[in-house]
Simulated assay, not measured.
Amino acid sequence: MPIITKITVQKKNKERYNIFLDGTYAFSVDEEVLARFRLSKNKELTDFDIGEIEYEDEIRKGFNKALFYLSYRMRSEHEIVLYLRNEHEMGDASIQETLHKLREYGYVNDEEFTKAYVNTQLRTSDKGPQHLQMALKDKGVSPGVIEAMLETIPFEEWLERAKQVMQKVIQKNQKQSEMQIKKKTQDTLARKGYSGIIIREVLSSQAIDRDDDEMWQAIYTQARKAHNKLVNKYEGYEYTQRMKQALFRKGFQMDNIEKVIDHLAKEE
């Protein structure tokens, strides 16, 4: 059986030790593994001993790598698995044992991770529940954990957040018709992960309050755009009909459409 002939501390990492068997470097181990297996000079090692030592050392290295990864922010178990597998090429058995140790010491907990993630998103973004659900699913959190967390947030809170999204859309689109604003709101809320029930409730309950000047600026802006596209292609009756169709499709009332067409004619 090979005998440990020398043990030296690594220069770049004082917590790791080089093990020499029969005068030749064989492998390195973490300080904790060195102590656990009582490795010392003149100790004999079987092939089984060496395999067990290397396996435990891989777990220890995985544990330390995972702690470094967790030092930046909380992670889901799935994120840690991918990190150890893809970045450090650890085997599945070692990864699962590493996860067991991380759980034992309280460094990973998908329930706590999900809670922290959702609370952060609620503070820093206007994303809806479906968006959060998909993001957590991508992080490997189980559907049951995700559902349990999202159920703690009342419907009224999601509704209020959706209303705030609509107000932002209104502010950014002052020169568009009410119909256009509602369409943009619907698209924006859907993209941000709000359900159809919430979207319908917001659109039916939120008024788009604008004074006469604001409404005139909206229709005038859209009419000017349509005019610039049509004026060199059509004239007379056909121009007027196409202008009416373009503005009507955008949700403006016919009496206001006729007024703005007359206004543009006088400008010309």
Results as ranks from 00 to 15, higher is better:
P129M: 10
Q130S: 05
H131I: 04
L132N: 01
L132Y: 02
Q133I: 00
L136S: 06
L136D: 04
L136Y: 09
K137W: 11
K137N: 05
K137H: 11
G140K: 13
G140Q: 13
S142G: 06
G144D: 08
V145L: 02
I146Q: 08
E147M: 07
M149Y: 02
T152P: 02
E157K: 05
E157C: 13
W158R: 11
R161D: 00
R161M: 00
A162M: 08
Q164K: 13
M166G: 01
M166I: 13
Q167L: 14
K168V: 11
V169L: 04
I170G: 06
K172L: 03
Q174V: 11
K175D: 09
K175S: 15
S177H: 04
E178L: 09
M179P: 01
K182V: 00
K183T: 15
K183A: 01
K184C: 03
K184A: 11
K184W: 02
T188Q: 05
A190C: 00
A190S: 06
R191K: 14
R191N: 15
K192M: 12
G193A: 11
S195H: 12
S195G: 12
G196Q: 15
I197H: 15
I198Y: 10
I199A: 15
I199L: 14
R200E: 14
E201F: 01
E201A: 13
V202T: 01
V202N: 13
A207G: 12
A207P: 08
A207R: 13
I208L: 14
I208N: 08
D209Y: 12
D209N: 12
